[in-house]
Design a protein around this nucleic acid. Structure first.
Lengths: 214, 214
DNA sequence: GAACATACATACAGTTTGCATGTAACTCGA
DNA sequence: TCGAGTTACATGCAAACTGTATGTATGTTC
């Protein structure tokens, strides 16, 4: 009989090591932030050496990039799972927003994705990552709403970015202790304002979205 | 006769050194970002030694904090100067927004105030800084609009934060090369949507704001 | 003008990053 | 199946950086 660790194909080794590295890095980046996390710490937590890290990733930033990519995908997944296709544009936006808050409530994710991410990787890189994941659904929803005439016709990229930014800031504020209800209500108003023919709808007249925050 | 450099009161020395340090740091932080700027570089550019830096500031972050504070104040000043008191709420918001974009167009300011700032100092600290400067005017404008009945009544802090975030993201996008007109138009729509009784106003019916972007 | 505080400069210790070098394990064609 | 070549690491090293401790000159105060 051979020890478990021996006799592994290169593919398996790479996959396992990369996975360990990313998992350890994710935990530490989320807990302490990018700047306060050192590569010796990461590799110690992953049970490998810095040689392995620099073999698989060009530098610390590349590892961070991989972590952000994964977390962004995870958040997008959670949102998609929580947002049934049967909803109208407005409801999809709000339900998705709530799912976004829940996904971001995993402690430290806001720091990773909304603070360190843009600072370390740059806004453009973050936009590219987001547009493959989280923002994609958002943009599609907005596009659909505009085509169907439910929403005012505006520059798609700009509106998507602006709403995305608003949701991001809300997530940050909520984690910092602000009233989730206040932010939800304001986001609702922001979105309603973009809807065609919303007139002066009384604040309470819009169908409420039910969620864990109620 | 004595050389210019001698015979200076402590107050003068401190003021001069702190000023040189902040000026040099501002230039470098704006050009290369916080992480890529080293303290040896800063002090070399300021013509002092690291001893002076660590005498006046607790650490690199404290210096960064001072720089951010100053730049935020400068931006707020430019906005205030460009926004006459005679404007109505909606126009004040849009004119101020345009002034904000112009102030942020100073290359690298977006990085300093919108990327590195939140990452290094945290959102809460940035919020405190902003609320003393840039956001203050914004919040007051919104509050006035709400009180006068021009704008829907919503949680003030939340709406302020959300709109502020939207403006921030727009500044970032514009610097990255996006169409300023698209973002302006979308922001206009976002704001109009918050106004009471805006109904289904045709896209072009709102008074245009004239600015350097036209 | 002596005691004290302030404003620095210099020296040092501990970390951290990225790379270069060494070695064991895997892959693959003959 | 076996050796050449590649991949996956571990280890060692050099440079840079941060923060602090220590030393010194210059103002300040009584």
């Amino acid at each position: 009989m051979q020890p478990e660790s021996a006799r592994r194909s290169n593919r398996e080794r790479t996959e396992a090591t990369r996975g360990d590295l990313i998992a350890a890095a994710t935990k530490l980046f989320v807990e302490k932030g990018y700047g306060e996390t050192s590569t010796p710490e990461i590799v110690a937590s992953a049970g490998v050496t810095r040689g392995a890290l620099y073999h698989h990733f060009a530098d610390k930033r590349a590892l961070f990039h991989a972590v952000v990519e994964d977390e962004a995908a995870a958040v997008a997944d959670e949102i998609e799972k929580a947002t049934p296709d049967t909803l109208g544009a407005r409801e999809a936006l709000l339900t998705g927003g709530l799912a976004f808050f829940n996904a971001m409530a995993v402690s430290g994710r806001t720091r990773l994705l909304l603070l360190d991410g843009p600072a370390i990787l740059g806004r453009e890189t973050m936009d590219r990552i987001d547009s493959r994941h989280g923002t994609r659904t958002l943009r599609e929803g907005i596009a659909m709403a505009m085509r169907s005439g439910a929403m005012k016709k505006l520059p798609l990229e700009a509106v998507t970015a602006l709403l995305s930014a608003a949701f991001d800031r809300a997530a940050l504020a909520i984690e910092a202790g602000a009233s989730a209800r206040d932010y939800l209500k304001s986001l609702e108003a922001l979105i309603d304002g973009l809807m065609e023919g919303n007139g002066a709808a009384p604040a309470g007249s819009a169908p409420r979205i039910r969620g864990p925050l109620d």
